[in-house]
């Protein structure tokens, strides 16, 4: 499959701040790629390098078969971008901004624009200064989604949207996937990425720590099991891959490494299972595990730009 974005060993620093420190990112044609990391991990910096707004200090980057820095304007005809922090011109109406950005990219579908305005419940006649943050975000989203482009670069696009609008956004991205467009979706909202993305790259402190499909990443995760057994759970604690075991008479709750699920289940059946619930691993947990040391005290090194 053709790669739309290839970035390898990107580094970028702003004065003393090391924003990117050997970042790798590969996005394939037609996929929705999740770009996950906490605030300040370097997501926006990476996207700005892809847009040719920033120049990487070192490393290789290629997008849509071109060099983002050198071929910026030609590449920009083929992509649409939604910034994480949308600011509009105070005296232009939302509709004017949508049309202007679309035309500058080289094409906008008026039917799709009207449809999106309705779905996002956005009044395009209001002036830029009167929009709320969520509505400014919607202006940028409508402009990007109604543009006739191959690649969408979305930097935390749902920040400021209410849950209803997040739902609309999810449906829209599903449609984009069906049309065969490629989407790079940066986010720190795990549920969003989990629902939408084919593959995920997780970054922290300016470097990628994991990349792959959700299925591939699940081997790093644990399934939560709670069960009621026929007899006391002897020997369960000795099995490899079992964590956080809590026993209350014949009731047990524990977590198990996903690749150790088989042996553990066999042991449970020999003990006799009365009821069992299992929870598949969520990206949340995966994420937490990768940032565990950070959560327990050490500070992130990167910056958001």
């Amino acid at each position: 499959m053709e790669n739309i974005i290839v970035a390898a060993a990107l580094t970028k620093s702003f004065g003393p701040t090391q924003a990117l420190d050997g970042l790798d990112l590969t996005v394939r044609a037609g996929e929705v790629h999740g770009f996950l990391g906490p605030n300040g991990a370097g997501k926006s910096t990476t996207i700005r390098i892809l847009l040719g707004l920033l120049q990487a200090d070192a490393g290789h980057v290629e997008m849509l078969g071109g060099d983002p820095w050198r071929d910026a304007t030609t590449l920009h005809r083929r992509l649409a971008y939604v910034p994480g922090d949308v600011t509009l011109w105070p005296n232009l109406s939302g509709g004017e901004v949508i049309d202007l950005l679309g035309r500058l990219r080289g094409g906008l579908d008026p039917k799709r624009k009207a449809d999106l305005l309705e779905r996002f419940d956005l009044d395009p006649r209001k002036k830029g200064r009167t929009y709320s943050k969520g509505n400014r975000q919607k202006v940028a989203l409508v402009a990007a989604l109604s543009s006739d482009v191959e690649l969408l670069l979305l930097d935390e696009p749902t920040s400021g949207l209410d849950p209803l609008m997040e739902e609309v956004f999810t449906t829209c991205i599903e449609e984009e996937r069906q049309r065969g467009r490629t989407v790079l979706l940066s986010s720190h909202i795990l549920a969003e990425v989990e629902r939408l993305c084919d593959r995920v790259t997780i970054i922290r402190n300016g470097a990628s720590v994991e990349t792959g499909t959700l299925a591939e990443l699940r081997h790093l995760t644990r399934t939560s099991i709670s069960a009621e057994l026929a007899s006391p759970p002897n020997g369960l604690a000795q099995l490899g891959g079992v964590h956080d075991l809590r026993v209350d008479g014949t009731r047990v709750r524990f977590e198990v490494d996903s690749n150790q699920l088989g042996p553990v289940l066999r042991q449970l059946t020999t003990l006799g299972v009365r009821s069992l619930t299992s929870q598949p691993p969520t990206l949340e947990e995966l994420f937490l595990r990768h940032y565990q040391d950070e959560l327990t005290g050490s500070q992130p090194q990167g910056a958001s730009r």
Binding site: E96, V97, R103, R125
Partner: peptide
């Protein structure tokens, strides 16, 4: 504040127009 137009005028299609 008054409402603006829902669509941009046909001329608003270049950085200079902006």
């Amino acid at each position: 504040a008054r409402l603006g137009p829902a669509d941009a005028a046909p001329g608003l299609r270049s950085p200079f127009a902006l």
